[in-house]
């Protein structure tokens, strides 16, 4: 089998064969192959948005589901994410040019005192894949940086991440500060990170706790749709 795979020429595959093959390559973390597949589909006239959704996001969704179900572990997810990143790097500049549908905007960052960003980066990537514009503030983000980005970017969503029990309470400081300034309800606040849970999310006044990147995307879509419906009704 391995030899057959080694001999596989992606350009010789039909679209119907190439897209699932790209899903397999993504699953196996083969970034060069994923990038090659993206370029082939572009040459065949696929729109960047179609490649993103049908070839990359659908493949990454399988990875996410298998991670949730304990079939894949963090190293494999990271390799798959790196492969998706390689494909996204080609598509990202083209998506804006081709008028791909936008779902909304998110500002995201790991909270002050915390340098862990694997989960945050996965969320940012999957949100971009789902059509959100993502402004990534990086790690060790303090309340002023969050609030400054909210004012400047006017996103729909604020995402905060923490890996440490000692840093997760900082999320409450950010939310309380937003409330003090009267802007809390202007944004959807999503939180995530290994030591968090739904109870904590509720207790600090977030709109939702998201246990993984796939849940973050679905939650974000649901909240944004609700927000738009409210605006339409209002």
């Amino acid at each position: 089998m391995a030899e057959e795979d080694d001999d596989l020429i992606l350009a010789d595959l039909s679209d119907d064969e190439l897209v699932p093959q790209m899903g397999d390559d993504l699953y196996d973390g083969l970034k060069d192959e994923v990038a090659e597949g993206v370029n082939i589909l572009l040459e065949r006239g696929w729109t960047p948005y179609r490649i993103l959704t049908e070839a990359l996001v659908s493949g990454m969704t399988v990875v996410g589901n298998d991670f949730r179900d304990g079939i894949l572990f963090v190293p494999e997810v990271l390799q798959a994410a790196n492969a998706m990143k390689a494909g996204m790097a080609i598509l990202k500049p083209l998506l804006a040019e081709t008028g791909a549908p936008r779902m909304g905007k998110m500002v995201i960052g790991t909270v002050k005192g915390d340098i862990h960003d694997i989960g945050k980066n996965l969320v940012a990537m999957m949100m971009e894949g789902a059509g959100f514009d993502v402004i990534d503030l990086g790690i060790n983000t303090d309340v002023d940086e969050y609030l400054g980005a909210l004012e400047k970017e006017q996103p729909d969503i604020l995402g905060m991440s923490a890996l440490l029990t000692t840093t997760m309470p900082y999320m409450k400081i950010v939310i309380d500060t937003m409330a003090e300034k009267g802007i809390r309800d202007d944004y959807i606040v999503l939180v995530g990170g290994a030591p968090l849970n739904e109870e904590f999310g509720r207790a600090i006044g977030a709109d939702a706790y998201c246990r993984d990147a796939a849940v973050a995307v679905e939650t974000a879509k649901a909240f944004v749709a609700r927000k738009h419906n409210r605006m339409t009704a209002g």
Partner: peptide
């Protein structure tokens, strides 16, 4: 997984 994928050390 650094025994299998040492390149992930940066991640």
């Amino acid at each position: 997984g650094l025994d299998r994928c040492p390149e992930l050390v940066q991640s």
